[in-house]
Design a protein around this nucleic acid. Structure first.
Lengths: 237, 237
DNA sequence: ACAAAAGTGTTACACGTACACCCATGG
DNA sequence: CCATGGGTGTACGTGTAACACTTTTGT
């Protein structure tokens, strides 16, 4: 039995993959290998398969095209302009992913004509992909303001200066060193390491690691609006 | 020209319509008129048509089934479990809408077997609709904590006690009257009216109206996390 | 006159912000 | 030994939370 009198459409998944190289935000793009718009830069994308969910499709596509696995990913928005794809009507569900750029930088570039671009200087992309990226940027800014999410972009060990550069880059602002470190450390999410990073400065900066347990349990901690937020539970999904 | 070798699927739109009757949050449901699950309660839904966007489909469906127009609506999430609809694979894009329950209460109920249910006591719905509602609840709580959005649920004129009940209902908490009114009035979003509402109390409570201009321009004002948020622009879409 | 709900004022505390100094190290 | 960047401490102001009293009016 089927529903009658209704149209069926293609459903695509597009992944916005963001990284941070220590100085600025990066976006992973590929050169589209088939028509239309062949050779033009594009988000990683593909069509959903009969037995998988959108999440599974996004994970599959990410792995196929980049080798990346176990990365932070969330559904962003579904795009549906009837003419967004000139070939045939296609609904596109956009996901955005946050990855540790160093961990994967090498293996990616060769195999699939993939390349990291500066997020501030994104080329013109196919279809509505530029719009998707705009939305992803906004979502990330929004979410990072309340949730400890940006650590997904850093290596396991990172320094406070690195962390600060990460936040400063996202909001295009400068933070006071002292206030920044106090605020971040007061969350109790970080474990100070004994080693120092000595590449970038003479004194060296201590490494920190994320306290994974607290990270997972405190992810929701944010609401100033509610008097006693401790008693409430929030989750977006 | 078409993309070859790919499946096409049905795409449905489901609307989660929320209201507030002065005491509690309400949810508008209809009795499904066709198989499967005929007669079971369901969200308002329908299939996307060839030349419309998802947004347009949501607006169309809302109007067809309820007569409602010009209401607050935003895309919530896209659901894609391969077996979520037993008849045939269907991707569902959920939207949630906030409506002034009084404005439309009467005209709805008769025509389409629609009914308001208490949000706290939602019946068992078809497919994954209960899950959609859960997500809508969370999204609303999340968003209302930072954005002046709940006014969409109130009539043009409303009192501070009503407003407080609205917030208390959403977060299932009690607020201090004095602090609450100070905080809300300090936003400058409200215009005090000369008339009072005298039904519910002896003294009567002054009516307020939303300052539409400020409402639209201050909608983004929220971020505590960033030192000088005035200089930044945020928007989710 | 009293009860019930609306409206306003004050104070203490916490948090965010601004700002100055000390520390460690490589050249 | 000095320049550079990392780390810590303190004072001030703003905003939030806790709390008590007055006002209005129907019965």
């Amino acid at each position: 039995m089927k529903y009658s009198g209704q149209i069926r459409t293609l459903v695509a998944v597009d992944c916005i993959i963001l990284g941070f190289d220590g100085e600025e935000y990066k976006l992973l793009l590929i050169q589209r290998g088939f028509a239309p718009e062949k050779k033009k830069w594009s988000l990683m994308g593909g069509f959903i398969q009969p037995t998988e969910t959108l999440e599974e499709a996004a994970i599959r596509i990410l792995k196929q095209l980049t080798g990346l696995e176990n990365v932070y990913m969330e559904q962003l928005h579904t795009f549906s302009d009837p003419n967004r794809d000139p070939v045939e009507r296609t609904i596109a569900v956009a996901y955005f992913a946050l990855v540790d750029i160093q961990k994967y930088e090498k293996q990616i570039s060769k195999e699939f004509h993939a390349e990291w671009f500066s997020l501030k200087d994104t080329p013109e992309l196919i279809f509505d992909h530029n719009q998707m990226i705009e939305m992803a940027k906004n979502r990330l800014r929004y979410k990072a303001a309340f949730h400890p999410i940006l650590f997904e972009l850093l290596p396991d060990k990172f320094t406070l200066p690195q962390l600060q550069a990460l936040y400063e880059g996202l909001y295009d602002t400068l933070f006071d060193r002292r206030n920044f470190s106090r605020k971040l450390l007061s969350t109790g999410l970080f474990i100070k390491q004994k080693e120092k990073e000595k590449e970038t400065s003479k004194k060296g900066a201590f490494y920190y690691k994320l306290d994974q347990d607290r990270y997972l349990s405190d992810f929701q901690a944010f609401l100033k609006f509610i008097p006693n937020p401790d008693k409430l539970m929030y989750q977006e999904a």
